[in-house]
Design a binder for these strands. Structure first.
Lengths: 219, 219, 219, 219
DNA sequence: GATGAATGAGCTTTCATTCAT
DNA sequence: AATGAATGAAAGCTCATTCAT
């Protein structure tokens, strides 16, 4: 086995160990010693692979989000029509978040850290995923409009909002201690966004005004 | 002036000083020394008013959210009809968040901390506000249904979701570096939720199915 | 007792403790823990008085050289004529170095450190003493010339050289493990410089050439 | 080429690389990694040739001083009379030190280290050079006395002092940041020692007293 | 012989908290 | 009530050295 493969593998092992300990203990409370012990290696070895604790934090997040993006991409690819793709995104997200419920607080810590640190790599990585989701969301939205499912809407603005909404529902779920079923919340949200809440009567009164707002997006 | 008033005032001074420094520097990077200096008092004095740094963190958040709740309550009270009340909630929220944009990262830190600490007071305080908003939202939603504006919907579920959505939009705004106008995003969100995205055609096809989902909420 | 006096005293205590431990163990091998233990205080307390280990090193050296300069100045002041003043300088130096023989290696470490660190305070402090000695030496030399004791010589150059020679003799003594009597070496050096080594014959042959060199100094 | 020659060459390569890095970075700040990189070899290979970092330090110094001794010996050998030999020693020293001005701080570090370490090899190596210079100096001094150039003087004591003086002048030059010309300082020093500073008048008054001191040396 | 991955002892420095004044 | 000097636990990080390949 070539050395470079070993190095890559060990690096992954450390990231995995770090993911476990960070998730359990939190970024600030976790010590490199903890991680090394979890990985079954010496403290100094961690520093052969990551220059700082912060770098390791980023690597954990990166691995996480790469997994997520791959999951979404794979499931979307397998879906046959646009509606199925939309469902694939939603289901992948729910699946992913539910599987990693224990890592949720770490996600908040990372967001908080990203806004504090001088290291731009954190916000960059965060926004890479956001961009991935926004692009995918906008694309699918455009298709739904073309196919006559959706009324005319600013697809970019909608995708941006949807990504935010997803995070917000997830956040509510986490802060609520998982007090409601996440998948049901996502389904409910989707119905809400699709169908709207207005009564027939109110819709007719407000239709043109609201329609123009949807078309204008966030401007 | 009675001594107890002085005490209360000094306590508030410390909380205000802490809010400034925490927001600027972040919870973990802030030292009690910083806060004392900002408050113009001695380091030891801080401990006359707060047992731990954590308590002070909570007090800052508590003051913040109390302000927010009071702002919402005041504006809602002044609104004359239900639609105006809904707008009052939205506008208060936007106003509050925009005024405190600089404190946004601290909010994330607090959420993260709340999920880590053994001290239940943090989650309690967070959920007090969520409950306040959920109750208010559910109440207004019920009124809108009664008044024929809204179709039938699980008001509790909707309010819960709406709170999450609000936080999510705020989160997106913060992580995006304020790259889009927050107030426009809130308006867009509201149109979306009210009007829905389905074309007339699609609405008619899916009406009953989606309507029942809205009525069932998160179950 | 005013607090400021206490602070000054404690600072001095720490410097004294540091001087002992640094001298015994060497700068690099000494830990702050050692120094704190020697001073009978907590490790953190050292940092209340000195921002870094390096600062403490400088403070030790500063205290040492201030003592030395004061000793020289005091003894020179008490001397009645120029020749006595010259002897006072020499005797003070010998006395000082002999008393602090154990600290000699530390002096070398400080010189080495001064040439490496980015902190200019080290070279500044070293050169302050050199300047003090050079000025004093040049002044006394000029007096000796005026009084007819010395032939004409570039007083500044001579003083500069003499300071270097002093350090060199001290260095030889230290590296030699104190294998020769320091005071005798200084006396010998003084005779050498005063009297020269040339035979009468050779002096007459070389007189004008060497005299002009002495007057030219280091140019 | 026999393997043993390769070994010797590689050893020298490592010493040369170490000399460069030590001189630039200082002993304590230099890592074996640095040296290995400079030598273009692996870190572990350094340990095939030197048991410890300290040994390598000694080897660098040893190479340096061996060069110096050889330079002096060669130049002295080529000189035809005693006065020329004396000049050869002085010029070799100046040349050597000026060429290696950048390595001067390292010399101080080595001196300091020699006084700290348990390893006696450092002081031994230092004193080997001192002995070489002392012997050479004493020999030449005796010749100058015999040839009538010098008055009677304790040649051993004088040589010892001269070596110290040389180091002292060099030290002054280094700490001064090369603020004066080293060769001129050495020439000035030589005139001073040869000719002395006393006026004719003073010489006659003090002649016998000083002459006896010169003959007694450091006793 | 050459290598560099692995190691852990050990360092400096920080800072929440205490408590004597 | 107010203070700030004192404290020591604790953590990130370095690097000389080892040793399996």
């Amino acid at each position: 086995m070539p050395a470079i493969v070993d190095k890559q593998k060990k690096r992954r092992d450390i990231v995995n160990a770090a993911a476990v300990v960070f998730a359990q203990t939190g970024y600030h409370e976790t010590t490199i010693q903890h991680i090394a012990r979890q990985a079954g290696i010496g403290k100094g070895t961690v520093y052969e692979y990551f220059a700082t604790k912060e770098d390791l934090f980023l690597a954990v997040y990166d691995a996480w989000m790469t997994d997520y993006e791959e999951l979404v991409a794979r499931n979307v690819e397998q879906a046959t029509d646009t509606l199925a793709k939309v469902e694939a995104v939603r289901d992948s997200t729910v699946e992913f978040y539910q599987q990693r419920a224990g890592q949720a607080p770490l996600l908040l810590e990372l967001w908080a850290h990203a806004l504090r640190t001088d290291n731009p790599a954190f916000l960059n990585r965060i926004n890479a995923t956001r961009r991935f989701l926004n692009n995918l969301g906008a694309e699918l939205t455009k298709e739904l409009i073309q196919q006559g499912w959706f009324t005319n809407v600013d697809a970019q603005a909608f995708a941006l909002l949807e990504t935010g909404i997803n995070d917000g529902v997830f956040l509510a779920w986490v802060l609520d201690g998982g007090g409601f079923p996440l998948d049901k919340a996502y389904t409910f949200r989707q119905s809400l966004i699709g169908y709207g809440l207005l009564s027939e009567q109110a819709r007719h009164m407000l239709a043109s005004r609201l329609q123009s707002k949807l078309e204008r997006g966030l401007d």
